[in-house]
Amino acid sequence: MGSGALAEVELSEDLQGREVAFDSIPVIDISTLADGSDEAAVAAKLRDAAERVGFLYVTGHGIPQTMIDGMFAQARAFFDRPQDEKMAVHIGKWPVHRGYFPLFEENTDPAMTADLKEGFDIGRDLGPDDPEVLAGLPLHGANQWPQGDPSFRAAADGYFNALCRLGARLMRGFAIALDLEPDFFADKIDRPLAQLRLLHYPPQSGHVAAKTIGCGAHTDYGCVTVLAQDANGGLQVRNTEGEWISAPPVPGAFVVNLGDQMARWTNGRFQATPHRVINVSGKERYSMPFFFDPNWEAEIACLPSCEIPGEAPKFAPVLAGPYLQSRFDATFTYRQDKAAL
């Protein structure tokens, strides 16, 4: 799909993100989390960002820009395929929530209409003899792959595995930030419900109202999200004053935000911050969120360091996998259609 000429765009007043310097969302160099030389200092910065904002930019993450750029190129090539080729790997044809979904398939904000975006979901690629597959765990199994392009799978596998390592490193930093043992989360994320999502947002023109934006306001469902976004921007984050602010791309940095499960684990101490996407760049927008979520059976209950003396936890315990599955069921139309059968 070509970007074409820039179109006239008029945003409703409630959709106008206030332009602020990007450092209103903290930028944190996490390189010392990898070598262990200064974990405490990084953890303190992670704690501050998690408690005040729920969003941060991370640099020093160790993932080569060439790998990120290569995955973006693969995403663009996939979304440029004819619609019938993309629908051949539709997410509804696969039992474990993997594959392509077209425009308006997902509705992240139930108060609005469905999202103006298409995507492709990739998870841990598990064979039929994997113990979790043999146990029949939902959301566990093989990926769907587009036909005729083995380079797509090779690039996705490499990028996915690199992000899993980064997700584990961030969880180590958050454990230290929460006054837990550094490896506290290790046995809860060693078989993660991780998901790489490739997204394409067509450009919007004319009057843009809240019911017709790329991705409706929502919090993420899981633990930690690591986002690569192209240069066209469009991400907005709602701050504690209820204002929507822009979260523009920062060269060489990922956007990291926390989800509902981390908020539940920390008794609301760490923030799951609402965000949305509005593509008014006049160009095709591409982004690649990576959701690093705990093992299926991990219990998400108030952590000891987050208990408030004399008060009950704010959230009831849940299991990570069933909670995540319930959120997919609520937001994807294909899953709702199946439930009605």
Rank of each mutant, 00 (worst) to 15 (best):
Y159S: 12
A210M: 15
N232T: 13
V208D: 01
G167L: 13
M171T: 06
G222I: 14
G158C: 09
A209Q: 03
R165T: 11
A210F: 13
D183E: 09
A168D: 02
T225D: 05
E243P: 03
T225H: 09
P192D: 11
Q195H: 05
V226M: 04
P192N: 03
L193F: 00
P203A: 15
G234C: 03
D179T: 12
A186R: 13
V224W: 10
D179C: 13
G242T: 06
K188A: 13
K188P: 01
H207Q: 07
G233E: 09
R169K: 15
T240A: 15
D220L: 08
E181M: 11
V224D: 01
R165Y: 10
A231H: 14
H207W: 10
E243G: 08
D157V: 15
L170Y: 06
R191T: 13
H218D: 02
R191I: 12
C164Q: 04
L198A: 04
E181H: 08
F174Y: 05
D157N: 12
G167Q: 06
A231I: 08
D220K: 11
R165H: 10
V226Y: 04
C215P: 02
G234W: 00
H200K: 15
R165D: 01
A186D: 00
K211L: 11
L198E: 07
G206A: 04
H218N: 03
Q195T: 09
Q204W: 10
D179P: 00
D190I: 14
N239Y: 11
G233M: 14
G206I: 08
T212H: 06
Y159F: 12
E181P: 00
R197H: 01
L235I: 12
G167P: 03
Q195D: 07
L227D: 01
F184M: 11
Y201R: 06
R169L: 15
V224S: 03
E243S: 06
G158A: 09
C223V: 02
P192R: 08
M171S: 02
I176M: 15
T240I: 14
F184N: 05
R165W: 10
N161E: 02
